[in-house]
Design a protein around this nucleic acid. Sequence first.
DNA 1: GGAATACGCAACCGAGGGGTTGCGTGATTG
DNA 2: CAATCACGCAACCCCTCGGTTGCGTATTCC
Lengths: 118, 118
Amino acid sequence: MSRHRNSAAPRITDAAPVFAALGDPTRARLVARLSTDGPLSISRLSEGAGVTRQAITKHLHAMDKAGLVRGSRHGREQIFELEPRRIEKARRYLDQISADWDSAINRLRSFVETDPPA
Amino acid sequence: MSRHRNSAAPRITDAAPVFAALGDPTRARLVARLSTDGPLSISRLSEGAGVTRQAITKHLHAMDKAGLVRGSRHGREQIFELEPRRIEKARRYLDQISADWDSAINRLRSFVETDPPA
DNA sequence: GGAATACGCAACCGAGGGGTTGCGTGATTG
DNA sequence: CAATCACGCAACCCCTCGGTTGCGTATTCC
């Protein structure tokens, strides 16, 4: 198989958790917040979130586990920040999907063209 | 930066369903399949999926509702194909996140630099 | 030292989602 | 026309997930 290039062929399996993380509205809002405001503490992120601090905590830990976010202790508070590399990975996966789709359509088209109607 | 009036500022609200759709492993596999093999019927997609045709049907309808996929009848079978525009939209949303994150980090850095330690 | 802050842990709950089975129906084929 | 194929609909089950409440603990502030 001549698939030497594109060694970073994105696997669905490690992109899926990221998408799952982005799928929830609360988590999506958290990501948006972190992307525009920079690193923030849990209680800071909980302000005006509409849900409990525990809910936010759970989401943050889930996103941490998914690699979308990274937390670190500073004194008595824990600061969470975005992990842009994961987002980049997810983005490239979407690119791959689009590219595959294009070539699939092209193959289909040429097949139909060369297929004589009986 | 004068493409259009970039009213295409991606809203989380319409990108979230797409991510949610991609989040499930079964649906992710469906997307991968459709992207590499082109348009396929329900029963075709059900072959080797590991789950029932009904499950596949549900997923396809869900993804249709999310705009990720589009189905059309052909005789007695219904063919589903990818909707690359939605994927493109999701991709651009991830771009936006990255861009916002970068500027947020830059703002933070300059703030720290100009902030005298007490 | 004592109060307030920022957080972690655990139990619990209701809704929804993924999956299945069963059955009915229109389209195809021979 | 009969058999088969591809599909839709509906009911049901189970388990995860988002969210809450309650309580305990380390840290900071005065």
